[in-house]
Design a protein around this nucleic acid. Sequence first.
DNA 1: CTCATTAATTAACTTTTGTTAATTCCATTA
DNA 2: TAATGGAATTAACAAAAGTTAATTAATGAG
Lengths: 196, 196
Amino acid sequence: MLSEEKVKRYLQQFQLTLPELMMILDTARVKELAADEVYIQQGSTFRKLAYIQKGLVRAYLLKENGEEVTVLLRWEDQFFNSYDAVFLGQPSRFTYKAMEPTVILEADYDTFMELVNSSPKFSKAKDFFMTRMLAEMLQRIESFVLLNPQERYQKLINEKPDIVQRCPDKYIATLLGITPVSLSRIRKRLASKGSH
Amino acid sequence: MLSEEKVKRYLQQFQLTLPELMMILDTARVKELAADEVYIQQGSTFRKLAYIQKGLVRAYLLKENGEEVTVLLRWEDQFFNSYDAVFLGQPSRFTYKAMEPTVILEADYDTFMELVNSSPKFSKAKDFFMTRMLAEMLQRIESFVLLNPQERYQKLINEKPDIVQRCPDKYIATLLGITPVSLSRIRKRLASKGSH
DNA sequence: CTCATTAATTAACTTTTGTTAATTCCATTA
DNA sequence: TAATGGAATTAACAAAAGTTAATTAATGAG
């Protein structure tokens, strides 16, 4: 299920013993998603915490004009949760959908938090988790404030080169805050610059 | 120091008793900043947690070309911390500076977290705090993905109308991910549209 | 009150993006 | 293999943003 290497990494990162990790994992269950299968439907109030073992998940919402806008892309070894339900206590405005065959380890957020609050040892792990989320979000905000669309695209393919093979450009475009047409032009500009 | 009304609000929000709140406040101290006074210098490794009682704080960084970019604006009744030091364990890339006479309630982040981890009661309060930060950051990310510069500006003055009197436009511009010249044009467009 | 400084606006021009639509490319299936 | 449908690219044009510099407005110090 989890590779030995990954288990080791998590024990170290979260500062947990193997039995403690097992207690956490016991609250979770594996969910397999086919490509294009919806994981969390818009409107859902489920409070879920998810770890992606394999695959790619896209969170998107519909603008008034009916256009889909990608708010989040998460891939293997990353965590995510149903933001609206967990953070804002409201029905999810987003739909979370697998972009390819995906294996998720999911837990009920409240059950998980209860366990995690039961011991200072777990509490530390939770801190680590939330802090990491905050750091990631801050970096995303920074990329919008500091970089132009082209630089944001370069940053993304730098951090996750295979994303372009795995995710249609139109979803990447809206994730970067631009239109698919504009992303296509950026790719063209980069290709011509890179070659000469 | 804190108005009775605010104390009540926090006791309710954080689900704490008055003595518990007092324990937390005992780890904090008041810091008064003059207009333009630096609160946290770029490069600082202090891990600070701050609550603004009164005033306005701007976090900014310098791009390679020497330009200042505003990453964050926080005002009265808001929390913030030294992000890099706290989230990433690295020296702050940002400078935090008061924009006007400001009163801050500050705590050492680690001392605060220690206290807060000492009891499940506090732990809940910490959760509330971190969750609220995450929600705010997510909403900021959404505004970049969903809105164009003009809409982002309108959203900001909607949420905090007096920000335009209290903060020079050039700082607001970079906060929104645009240039001061562009913000000036947006203001002009809005003025002409609003009048007819 | 005047001068000096900084912010904001405007102008002129270039670059980029948005928008809409047509075209090409690619993968899937009949 | 041909047909189909969606994604990506391209085109053409309008709108917006970046850049640099000049001008105007506002602020604060002397």
